[in-house]
Design a protein around this nucleic acid. Structure first.
Lengths: 224, 224
DNA sequence: TCAAAAGTGTTCACCGTACACCCATGG
DNA sequence: CCATGGGTGTACGGTGAACACTTTTGA
């Protein structure tokens, strides 16, 4: 028996589907020789000559083609009698993608799945996902992290819908708008987006300077 | 070269010295053959046949004799070119000890060191400590976790001093007392502790039921 | 009698929350 | 002209924060 375990890297990748206005995660579909189908997180193994953060980036890039991703370590799990043999410990990361979660499917055999429609995953990946959701919820309420899931220009409606998806509760439009504006995190552009409504709605960008300060101060959001 | 890394477990163990009213961590002193002295966290290696949580408990117990400890995983670190060869990744845990941080020194060759007097530690243990302090500070402001550092019966003064040590700022006695009482986390006993003052001060215990609810609701503390 | 710690209330300012109507425009 | 989504302000209550004096009793 080996005396050191394998180290797996598992990534919970969140994306916001702007069309469906829903939060999704990127999953890999495996078709076994038996014909059975299983699902897993985007995963790989740590190489002996790379740091674990590098490994997470490599895994993410090689399976999705994505780069410059917000990535944060979540947890190391290493129960016995659960998961693959030989002995493996798993380090999970969660990632936020600021691109429309509807593209890049076929090329990489990864699929964007609505959180509410998530199939059962292998090993302890389900537990990792629920841990990632909790982390995302906590972060969203204390840091302006949700912005990392949106494209450069976005409407206030998209921002609200995104936060509603994350925390799983409806938000008050006026209070939310007031809050994010008063935090100074946003720049309203003069452009309007005209597809979604007859009136058209303003586009916003992030105010990058204030953004970083805001992370420290925290960002409390109104619910209901 | 091996293709899987060693997995180290490093524990940041916090204790509250009631005599000195200061927060301390438990460190191991190593005297090298050269006569040089180095310091490290309480550490060990993951065995192939135990979970990582079990490993943390084992390491903690074998080096301190302590059991039934509050333990929480912090982070996995695994940079290359830093730390021991052969390749090792380290999983850090932080622990809170509810016993007076002045005992059990000699028996286990571990030393309680004031945070302000912490020597430089080996590898990336300093980084782990600062991460642990941050975590403890955050937890202390949102969960009644600080109670885990006190004995069963304690005075309000001790509780305040502990929180002041944790967050590194003075607290308003009246506001703090009001807050913790209103949260219902405490039971005031009829006993008084008579050593610290002529008047004597009431002893408190935790209200275990409300304690767990309080964890969910959060506990905000007054500063200044 | 005095020193040293314990105990206790009030006021103010801010912010989170609830809540509803008019605007612009493409069809 | 009307349906659809966009945009905006006010009033109330709760809570965090500031702040000082009296009590007790061992030495």
């Amino acid at each position: 028996m080996k005396d050191t375990p394998f180290v797996a890297i598992d990534c919970i990748i969140f994306g916001f589907d702007q069309k469906e206005e829903s939060l999704k995660i990127l999953l890999l579909k495996h078709v076994l020789q038996s014909g059975e189908t299983t699902w897993s997180l985007v995963s790989g193994f740590l190489n002996i000559d790379e740091s674990i953060d590098d490994a997470a980036n490599r895994v993410l890039h090689s399976l999705t083609g994505l780069t410059e991703i917000y990535l944060e370590q979540l947890h190391a799990s290493g129960a016995i009698h659960y998961g693959p043999e030989p002995r493996t410990i798993a380090i999970s990361y969660y990632a936020l993608i600021n691109q429309n979660a509807g593209i890049l499917d076929d090329k990489y055999s990864a699929h964007w799945i609505k959180l509410s429609e998530k199939p059962k995953l292998i090993f302890d990946h389900d537990e990792m996902v629920s841990r990632a959701i909790k982390r995302l919820q906590r972060r969203a309420l204390t840091q302006p992290i949700g912005f990392k899931l949106l494209p450069t220009k976005f409407t206030m409606r998209q921002l609200i819908k995104l936060y509603e998806e994350i925390i799983g509760e409806p938000l008050d439009k006026r209070n939310f708008t007031k809050k994010v504006i008063s935090l100074g995190l946003l720049k309203r552009l003069t452009e309007k987006e005209k597809n979604s409504s007859r009136k058209g709605s303003f586009l916003y960008k992030f105010n990058a300077e204030k953004f970083n300060k805001g992370v420290e101060k925290g960002m409390t959001l109104h619910t209901t």
